[in-house]
């Protein structure tokens, strides 16, 4: 199990880093988009961000163009299906590299709680899968069954987006409440593997006795993911991230359907979700490792630094989920167009 886990993390990190360096080297980038790198002044920091985002957009555009070409080629050449699936995967990885609500939820949640890596990875894959299902359901339901126009179908991503963000706010509030409640009990911290007890999510009752606390923490580790609140929480997080389909997947589906290639479109959507999941799990791994390192360093200090850092992460992460949820929801409700990742 451990070895499998390590292999998955390694694969994630490798893919994550190649996706990032790919922007720098731009191997797929055709000669058609402007590269302003030479024109920028090198000494200031924001230019690096601008350049990276520009390169990322160009790479995404280029992948999209190739994707469209592969779908067209499929009409005459069955072998093009492999190109299509490969490009879909790449598109999924790239699409997820940009900012988006799923990343906010995963990173903030994992920073705030003592959930282990396994949960983070499961969350990444489950939510990406739900995103793919959501995209197929949206396009199948609206464009195919109800014969809604393609542009209208795409615009309806917004409805699912609002549902996602509303759920995100609810989860954030729930996490915040648990984090604040947990903070009031003065737990001693015995073992850093347990992370901070009372961190967001697992809203367990009061444990004022230190001995009871340790036992509780140990017992809890065992059935954390099997417990009903654990499962409910997992489902809520998966839906908050996944209900809103990836807009790229919706576009590919609409495009494939317009070309009369329904199965290819659906296949591409699920492969794309696998790519998204890989980017998300790289982020999840990074967050969990960062949190554990931070706690370990803090616990090495005298006094209650470990407890305070754990509590700070719990509250900060919970507030981040809530805050971003509120902002995204307000933006989605206030704008006619589509917003968010």
């Amino acid at each position: 199990m451990r070895r499998v886990l390590l292999a998955v993390v390694f694969a994630c990190l490798v893919f994550g880093s190649t996706a990032l360096t790919a922007q720098e080297n731009r191997p797929l980038l055709g000669p058609r988009t402007t590269a302003p790198a030479a024109a920028t002044t090198p000494e200031r920091e924001p230019d690096a961000i601008d350049r990276t985002l520009r390169a990322l957009r160009a790479l995404q555009f280029d992948t999209q163009r190739r994707l469209a070409g592969a779908v067209r080629a499929l009409k005459n050449d069955r072998a093009a299906v492999w190109t299509l699936l490969f490009l879909s995967f790449l598109y999924g990885v790239l699409h997820a590299v940009g900012p988006g609500h799923g990343k906010v939820v995963i990173a903030s949640y994992l920073a705030a709680t003592r959930d282990r890596l396994r949960h983070g990875l499961a969350l990444s894959f489950a939510s990406s899968l739900v995103q793919a299902i959501s995209a197929v359901a949206l396009v199948g339901g609206l464009a195919v069954i109800l014969q809604v126009s393609q542009m209208q179908t795409q615009a309806n991503v917004r409805v699912l987006e609002i549902a996602s963000y509303a759920l995100m706010v609810a989860i954030g509030l729930w996490m915040t409440a648990s984090a604040l409640r947990g903070g009031r009990h003065h737990h001693h911290h015995h073992n850093h593997h347990h992370g901070l007890d009372g961190a967001a999510g697992l809203g367990h009752g009061a444990h004022d006795h230190q001995n009871a606390h340790h036992e509780h923490a140990l017992a809890q580790r065992g059935d954390e993911d099997k417990s009903r609140p654990g499962r409910r929480r997992f489902l809520a997080l998966t839906l908050a991230i996944g209900i809103r389909p990836c807009s790229g997947a919706v576009l590919v589906l609409l495009f494939s359907f317009a070309q009369g290639l329904v199965l290819a479109g659906i296949g591409a959507t699920f492969v794309m979700a696998a790519g998204t999941a890989l980017t998300l799990c790289a982020l999840a791994a990074l967050t969990v490792v960062a949190r554990q390192t931070l706690l370990r360093v803090a616990e090495g200090r005298r006094g209650r630094a470990g407890v305070w850092v754990g509590r700070g992460l719990a509250i900060g992460g919970s507030l981040a989920v809530t805050g971003f949820g509120v902002l995204l929801l307000a933006a989605a409700l206030g704008q006619p167009g589509s917003v968010g990742g």
């Binding site: 940009g98 988006g100 807009s247 902002l327 307000a330 990742g341």
Partner: peptide, 22 residues
């Protein structure tokens, strides 16, 4: 968060482009 909120809520950009124009 409130400061961040004021800054962000005034303009709500898409997370990344959905349409490309050359």
């Amino acid at each position: 968060l409130a400061v961040l909120g004021l800054g962000l809520a005034s303009k709500a950009p898409a997370a990344h482009p959905h349409v490309w124009i050359e």
